[in-house]
């Protein structure tokens, strides 16, 4: 339930990033990317396939003119990242950043493949692609740093000390 709520929050945030007036590059920061990275790196297993498909469809509803390809792209990238995370032991913030870039690349590639048969895949533009990879990596790296700091645990310990 909490996860679903947090996914909704990130999708809403993604929508806000595309509002007129904000910088054009803001939409290249994919906030829901963290839901592909968090489960395998934190809990050593990706979300189930259906949950990843729902995440992708949510992405489509919020940001895409065509609904469907996102479900394939996001679930595929999530499963690939889950497979990769089982083979890499590193769970440092650097690994989180790397996983963010891999997830973004996976989504970009798979979405392009799914759009090709529909005739909707435009020319490949490298600058926006690099921006998505860089921002995705930075965003997931930041989340990795925050979870390494264990802010929630520190607050809990502080509360327990006060109660004593």
């Amino acid at each position: 339930m909490t996860a679903a709520l947090l996914v909704l929050v990130t999708l809403t945030g993604q929508r806000i990033l595309g509002l007129p007036g904000l910088p054009a590059w803001a939409t290249d920061l994919w906030l829901p990317l963290v839901w592909l990275v968090w489960p395998p790196l934190r809990n050593d297993r990706a979300w189930p396939f259906w949950a990843l498909v729902l995440l992708g469809l949510g992405w489509d509803v919020v940001t895409e003119p065509v609904i469907g390809p996102g479900g394939i792209a996001w679930s595929g990238a999530g499963l690939a990242l889950g497979w990769l995370a089982r083979r890499v032991a590193d769970r440092s913030p650097v690994a989180w950043a790397g996983a963010g870039a891999v997830a973004a690349a996976g989504v970009l590639l798979l979405r392009r493949l799914t759009l090709l048969p529909l005739g909707l895949a435009g020319p490949w533009m490298w600058i926006p692609v690099l921006r998505v990879l860089l921002l995705g990596s930075a965003w997931c790296g930041l989340v990795g740093v925050v979870q390494r700091l264990d802010v929630a645990g520190a607050i809990g310990r502080m509360r327990r000390r006060r109660l004593r």
């Binding site: 007129p20 590059w25 290249d28 940001t63 926006p128 921006r131």
Partner: peptide, 13 residues
Amino acid sequence: SCRYRDLSRGILE
């Protein structure tokens, strides 16, 4: 009125 835009992909809702 514009609701959402992704200028890297050149689309605007």
